[in-house]
Each structure stands twice: as structure tokens, then as C-alpha cells.
Write a protein that binds this DNA or RNA. Sequence first.
DNA 1: TCAGATCCGGAATGGCCACTTCCGCTTAGC
DNA 2: GCTAAGCGGAAGTGGCCATTCCGGATCTGA
Lengths: 230, 230
Amino acid sequence: MSELAPPHLRADAQRNLERILAAAAELFRTRGLEVSMEDIAHAAGVGVGTLYRRFRNRDELIGALFASRLAEFTEVVRECGAIPDAWTGLVTLLERTLELQAEDRGLKHLFHSHEYDRDAVTDVRDLMLDELARMIERAQATGDLRADIAPMDLTLLSFQVGAVADLTADQDPGAWRRALALALDGLRPNQRAGRTLPPGPIDKDTFDEALQCWRPPGSAATRPPAGAGS
Amino acid sequence: MSELAPPHLRADAQRNLERILAAAAELFRTRGLEVSMEDIAHAAGVGVGTLYRRFRNRDELIGALFASRLAEFTEVVRECGAIPDAWTGLVTLLERTLELQAEDRGLKHLFHSHEYDRDAVTDVRDLMLDELARMIERAQATGDLRADIAPMDLTLLSFQVGAVADLTADQDPGAWRRALALALDGLRPNQRAGRTLPPGPIDKDTFDEALQCWRPPGSAATRPPAGAGS
DNA sequence: TCAGATCCGGAATGGCCACTTCCGCTTAGC
DNA sequence: GCTAAGCGGAAGTGGCCATTCCGGATCTGA
């Protein structure tokens, strides 16, 4: 994060730029993408003016910070797709993508967003959905995954667990893992069958449409009651 | 909803009052508790002034509309607690309380809220948690529920599925049922065991703390792209 | 029918908050 | 030192919303 824009920044400017990036990353991570520009500037120990001289607006700042992070999703999808055992791959994929989201509210927000970087985000989501479809087929073939599961079931499952991760992020950052484990157990082919599932899974377009109205929770909420540790 | 405040309302005032209550109920139901007072007045076909003459502020309006609805939760908990088969009771309880929430965003919001009617809401939640604890014990005794489940696991599970209900409410209002069914299957005692669950479930205080920062999603989001129904 | 109590609508007020711009002052760098 | 680059943060904008106010419209009861 050292070579941006005009090749030669004055030393102090360079230092401030780095402070800004660090502060923004941290705030986006812990509070989501909607922290105010003023808060970011303040956390970086600079004035808002300085912030705006470096980034025309918040979108540009987000772009600078998250382009590479978004790529991590792609990377994870690839890696998990290469795991020989399909069920293991599936579990790992869900775990790792949820980890990414649980560790970084901003990234999670971005991943569900329709307001920033639309294309990059859609690409990642599509890639993941494709891989999920492949994995599902493979896992069903080996009998590790119940037969009535469709890709969108897993997308929704990930979304659900993500909601828990979000809810408990400040109090018990690992709570989502248990929820995930529980959910995964419901995916196993059932000896003592539950019941047959209701209708078909939601389809992708519907999900996308829904996401368009979605906004990550906690945004305008009362500021977290400060340190609450687990 | 005919006898309120001053015993004798002028006929037109009475009519307006009823329109307001109807409009507010509908808007709260479909959009959550944060619709603006102006929107409510407009939907009722009256001016904001009229709205405010009847209800000092939004809290009073919410109170008037939801007191009884909140009682429905209590009712459902009681009924389900009385179901002889514990597992059936458990499933029914989750289904019915989620139905209530899925049908009414305002009620869902209220149920997770710390800003309105705090006491009434906490009572209902506590009642539900107690009943869940009892049901869990019973269901585990009959071998219908895996042994490592704690009440908060189910609270969280309900929360998760509620998140799906919220997400897809406008596009596919029934989608959450499938998610719930899937999740429930994960609760069965497992022959072909998944793996042992991570740590212990989150504890109640932690969850409450988390909820304090929680805000139902979609609030400040872009207004839904109009009619999108599935 | 009519007087006056009631009620109405919606413009106006005031608060809040975030983004962005601007400009006089500071400081790095030669 | 001198000069251009950089700085801070106050001020300008715009949007959103709850709530108040009051001139005018509408009921009601005699």
C-alpha cells in the first residue's frame, strides 16, 4: 500500500495516507462499511480534508481497500474446489468464507452489497455458486450429502450463519461455528429421516432480488455498549 | 379498536382513527417499525397532525397496535408446551413463532427490540426460553433430540431462520420453511454423526447484549424495487 | 339552519448527521 | 529561507424525520 496516485508524495503525506488506510481498514472491519468519513479521519489522526484529498469519496476508499480482499474469496473457492473429498470441500468452503466474513464486517457487507463494486462482487458470488453446484453434485454422488439439496440451499445456509456471526461478533466471535456445525449436520443423508423438505429451494434470481433490499444489521443501531468481550 | 381515550370522538375523528390504525398496522407489518410517521399518515389518507392528535408519538402508536400481538407469542408458547410429544412441540413452537415473525416485520422487529416496550418483550422472550428448556429436556429424554443441544442453540436457530424470513419476505415469503426444516434435521440424534459440536452454545446474557446492537435489516436500505412478488 | 366546539391538513420548525468543499496556516524539501 | 505541497477542520449542503402549530373545514346538537 505504498505506491498510489502521484508517484511522489511528500513524506508526511505518505505517512498520513498509510494511517488512513490502516484506520479505515480497522473501522470497516469492526463496524462495517458505513462508518462516517469523519470517524475514519479522526481514527487516522488527520482531518477530513486530508482524507478527501487522497480519496475522492468513500467508494474510492472502499475500492482501494477491498479489491484484494475480495480476491481472497476467489482464492478460497478455488482451493476448496480442489479438495478431493467433496463433502470436506463443501464444509471447508463454508467455513472459510464465513471466517472471512466473521473477521471483517466490511467484507461481509461488501459481499452482500449492491452498492459498491457491483461487478466484482457479483463475479465472486457467481463463482462461488458454481463451485457449490459442482461440489453438491459430487458430494451427493458419494452419498455424503442428502439428495434434495440445491446450491441455493447452501447459499441461504451461509447467509443464515452469517447473520449469527454478525449478531454475536462483538460478544462471542466464534459462536457462528457452532451454528454452522449444527446446520451442516442437517445436510447429511438421514437415516432417521427428518421429514421431506418443503417446496423447492429459493432460486437465485429471487435471492438476488431480496439482497437488493437487504442491509447489514446493526448499522444505525445504538453504538455498541463499548468493550463487551466474551 | 373502537373505544379509546375520550369516550366520545366525533364521527369523522373515529373514522380517521380507525384508518390510522389500519394503515399503521399494514405498514409496520410489511416494512417494519421504522416507517416514518408521515408515511403512515399518508397511507391512512390523513395529515400528520391528525396522527399526532391521536398518538403522542410513534411509541404510543406501536404500543396501541402491538400489545395484543405480543400476547400471541405467549399464547403460542403455552399451546406448544402442552403438546404431549416433546419433539413435535418443539418443532411446532419454532414454526409458529417464526410464522408470526414472518408475517409481520413489525412484530419481528419488536420481538428483537430493546427500544419499545422493553419489559413486555423481555417477558415474552424469557417465557419462550423457559419453555424451550423444558421441551429440550423432554425431547432429549425420549431420544428425539440430540443430547448436546442447549436452549440458546434453538434461540439462535430461530434467529437464523428469522433472518432468512426477513431477507426473502418480499420475494418468497415461504422460503424460511425450507431453511427451518433443514436446520431441524440437524437437531436429530445422529446415527451417522456429523462431528461433535464446537464449544458450548452462546449464553443468554451474551445474546441479549448482542441484540442490543442489533437492528433489523432493510431499514435504511433502498426502498424495495416496488412490486417484486414471486 | 346555524353557532361553535372539534377536528383537519400540511407547511413550518428544529434537530441530526454525513458528505464534501474551501481556505488560511503549516511543513517538507530543496 | 523560500515555495509548493499538504494540512485541519469549520462551514456549506442536502436529506431525512419527528413534532408543532394554526387558519380553515367539518361535524353536532339545538
